[in-house]
Nucleic acid binder design. Sequence first.
DNA 1: ACGTGCAAATTGATATACTAGTATGACAAA
DNA 2: TTTGTCATACTAGTATATCAATTTGCACGT
Lengths: 243, 243
Amino acid sequence: MTNTVKHGGSALRHQTSDGPNGIRLRRVTTAAAIYQQLHAAIVSLALKPGISLQEKRIAEEFGVSRTPVREALLRLAEVGLVEIFPQSGTFVSRIPLSAIPEAVVIRKSLERTTVERAAQVATAEDIAQLDSIIARQRAHASLGEASHFYEQDEAFHEAISAIAGYPGIWTLVKTVKLQIDRARRLTLPVSGRMTTVTEEHEAILDAIAAHDADRASAAMMHHLGAVIPDVEALRQHHPGYFA
Amino acid sequence: MTNTVKHGGSALRHQTSDGPNGIRLRRVTTAAAIYQQLHAAIVSLALKPGISLQEKRIAEEFGVSRTPVREALLRLAEVGLVEIFPQSGTFVSRIPLSAIPEAVVIRKSLERTTVERAAQVATAEDIAQLDSIIARQRAHASLGEASHFYEQDEAFHEAISAIAGYPGIWTLVKTVKLQIDRARRLTLPVSGRMTTVTEEHEAILDAIAAHDADRASAAMMHHLGAVIPDVEALRQHHPGYFA
DNA sequence: ACGTGCAAATTGATATACTAGTATGACAAA
DNA sequence: TTTGTCATACTAGTATATCAATTTGCACGT
């Protein structure tokens, strides 16, 4: 377990507080920047589950001191993306397959709530917004742009949360579904999957537009239930990635 | 905004790692200890919303360096109990009344899920366990022991989550209901409230014992809906406590 | 093969110093 | 009086060096 990963020697550049127009921007701390970079790297599996992360080495690679690196790692440990063993080492967490079913249940519970509420209160503009998201999604799907497609997928769910008046629920869902996302990254990109997802989103939107909370809920449950990855196949293809 | 608060000069003592029986206990880091103390102080309102918390001063009061204090404050900021303004100051967060309705919705959503599942799968032992919790609760209520009563109240909900097979949901609910708890602390202890809560718990348990998921859900929703504090009265009595 | 013990490695914590924003109040200008 | 500027002090963010506590692995000896 002495694997390491190169970060490409990316140097962090402190953002100065003054924008060109004199607007006072919120300062981006070094610790926050490192957190985001590591977060993205872990979720995208650029940093593989199980590999070692050392405060000292990361600090050198980013060209900063241990302090902000340490703070970033502590935050990552809280959301379950790294595991810190005192006086021993810090490692990218293995994907806890046993926790995924519960994460799915939580997500279903919360998104059922948002979609039902959204179906009750959605305005014409809300529906138009969701429709435009789906349109972009369909375009990306036809071009096979998985990354952009994924962004719009998230935007769709986030928009529903916002429409319902519960934007904080999406924030919660994002952290809950982290490990699910990591597992999903390992599944081969099934052709046609993007089209299927788009159709499921359309079904959800149809129900919202009809202000049919029950149908919207059912469509959302079907959508979220279809995303569960095949656990056993993953274990076979990627030994050592799971806890 | 130069208010401060005395911590009574409580000195932290490092726990050694070896228990009397040789079992290797998980080491309690200084940062974690400080986090817990500040967490409890803020939720119990011993630390009032809005007052200043300074890394340096807290470090001196606890007799430690800035580092663990800083880590504790960062964690507290993540759960919304303190607000950090870079290069300016750190303050106990004011209670965000506007976020409370959403927190209630989230809690209802998650606990509806757990109680419905619990009603489906509860065994005789599970039901006995819940019954004993309620028994203890009734005893504490009759003696007016609010603090012990509150512990059993939490234990009841936590047990339901565990019975459902979703222990992580209770962990989530605990953080979501933090601000609700702070607001509730400000409400005067209504006589008979403890008795009412106990009866509501009994109704929930009855439905679970009967494996009636719908009734259990309804009882839980009624229970959680009855706890919403009177926002306007709070604003009047405690100016400066809310955001 | 199997413990034993020591050295290396790593996180936890301390102490100190410096930087960069931020709040504050005094003071000058209108 | 009001407004704008400036000096000052304060605070969080970061850097650096160092030590402590503990785990881990490997060499060593039995």
